[in-house]
Write a protein that binds this DNA or RNA. Structure first.
Length: 420
RNA sequence: CGGGGAGUAGCUCAGUUGGCUAGAGCGCUCGGUUUGGGACCGAGAGGUCGGAAGUUCAAGUCUUCUCUCCCCGACCA
């Protein structure tokens, strides 16, 4: 992508109405722009990050048997009345039509998926079943805050699992836990699996927490990694030795990026979702739910990985793998043949990278100084920066966003590095 | 929803006790000089001062109402 053509440019000053680190950086760098409080537009760069996160989540959900589907956002009031949540779900958006009919705007999808699954599941032979969707959800937060961390409209993955019995559910729950661990690792995030309360549905749940000052949750955890509990339910105190002797337990603020929990038969009983077992007996289906906040993850990554200059994207979620800069006199290429060759060379490197299948954001702007391009590259935070200039001669300068050192490499050497 | 703060150019902001054609920096356009860490000179465009009502000879400035954004709290499968 040529930066000169990219929709959504960097800005020098942060907008005054963005205070949260993630919103400030993402706005400055041209990834997002606020529409109203807690509701953001995702510009091309931001959408690429969102899609990369979604795709990793998608791959891992597919790997544990998940089938992707798309559910409605405009939902059925009757179903919500049936579960009692039409009145008890306090952040439910209620949209009214011209005919004065009310529709819940989906904050979650149990009320849609359970009646839907009921139309297809009759027998133990239809189970287990794992379906998921990655969709925009709406929650009427009284106070949206912290940029992408707590919005009124946000992108979320929800997987629902359906089982014949508790035992089968528990088996899958452990599989899901493993998938979550792998998935967060792929995203480049240090995520702590945390025991949490069960809310209204069950005795327990698990949250996936990222330690960060901006977080709204508080966890008591073992730095060695074998224990963590939400402070709301923790029975142990900060400072106590953990069971494996990894030193004293710590207390920290954290961002909840995922949450998995048993639904048992709560929704299947409400909607009459049952199956016939081998003896022809009707039983309620046992369910589990597995959520991940996709847009919140994007905010969390920006919140956690940055320095004074900008964002530092982990490789797998960066909008582009590489950032190419040409330092040249483009104002009057016809006047200075030597420097105009640099422009041609950078164009050529760009074409070759593209041909080799390397994702590259090419800063081809002709009226921006070298310093301006470097500053923007740091702000945008793509993992690898490559420079072509008079100084690099027939080579290309390679620099990682996380490091200060630069190296001069040939295009072949660069392609070799990007392959591994 | 309670408490606090803020709305003036695309962005960040200044604007005195109400007083003349409402300003600056950045950005943008044009011309010129520049090019390895956010260059410089010159010219120019750009404003219903969030909205409505009111007080006044006169309102960005005072009063009332209202909308919006931010922060703290409460809330948060």
């Amino acid at each position: 992508m040529r930066y000169s053509k990219l929709f959504g440019k960097t800005i020098k000053n942060a907008l005054s109405d963005e205070v949260a680190v993630n919103a400030k950086l993402l706005t400055k760098a041209g990834f997002i722009r606020k529409e109203i409080a807690g509701v953001y537009n995702f510009l091309p760069l931001g959408l690429r990050v969102l899609n990369k996160i979604s795709n990793i989540v998608r791959e891992e959900m597919n790997a544990i048997g998940g089938q992707e589907l798309e559910l409605t956002t405009l939902q059925n009031k009757q179903s919500w009345e049936k579960t009692g949540r039409w009145s008890s779900f306090d952040v439910l958006f209620k949209a009214k039509s011209q005919l004065e009919i009310e529709y819940p705007l989906g904050p979650t999808h149990e009320e849609v998926i359970v009646p839907l699954v009921k139309q297809f599941v009759n027998s133990y032979k239809d189970l287990p079943l794992y379906v998921y969707q990655i969709q925009t959800k709406f929650r009427d937060e009284k106070r949206a805050k912290s940029g992408l961390l707590r919005g009124r409209e946000f992108l979320m993955k929800d997987l629902y699992s359906f089982h014949t019995d508790e035992k089968d559910f528990e088996k899958y729950y452990e599989i899901a836990k493993k998938a979550y661990k792998k998935l967060f690792k792929r995203l480049g995030l240090d995520v702590i699996e945390t025991q949490a309360g069960g809310g209204t549905f069950s005795k327990f749940s698990h949250e996936y927490q990222v330690v960060a000052e901006a977080g709204e949750d508080e966890i008591i955890y073992c730095p060695g990694g074998d224990f963590s509990a939400n402070a709301e339910i923790a029975t142990v105190k900060e400072g106590k030795q953990c069971d494996l002797g990894h030193g004293p337990l710590k207390k920290a603020k954290a961002i909840e990026v995922g949450n998995i929990f048993p639904l048992k038969t709560k929704f299947s009983e409400t909607f009459g979702l049952t199956y016939k077992d081998k003896d022809g007996k009707e039983n309620p289906v046992v369910m589990g739910c597995y959520g991940i906040g996709i847009s919140r993850l994007m905010g969390t990554i920006a919140e956690v990985y940055n320095d004074g200059k900008g964002i530092i994207w982990p490789e797998n979620v960066a909008p582009y793998r590489t950032h190419l800069i040409g330092i040249m006199n483009n104002a009057r290429p016809e006047r200075d043949r030597r420097e105009s060759r640099i422009k041609e060379r950078t164009d050529e490197v760009y074409e070759k990278l593209q041909k080799a299948g390397v994702e590259v954001l090419y800063d081809d702007r002709e009226d921006v100084s070298a310093g301006g391009k470097f500053a923007d590259a740091d702000l945008i935070g793509i993992p690898v920066r490559m420079v072509v200039s008079e100084k690099t001669q027939d080579k290309i300068e390679w620099k990682k966003r996380t490091e200060e050192k630069t190296e001069l490499l040939s295009l072949d050497e660069i392609l070799g590095r990007l392959k591994s």
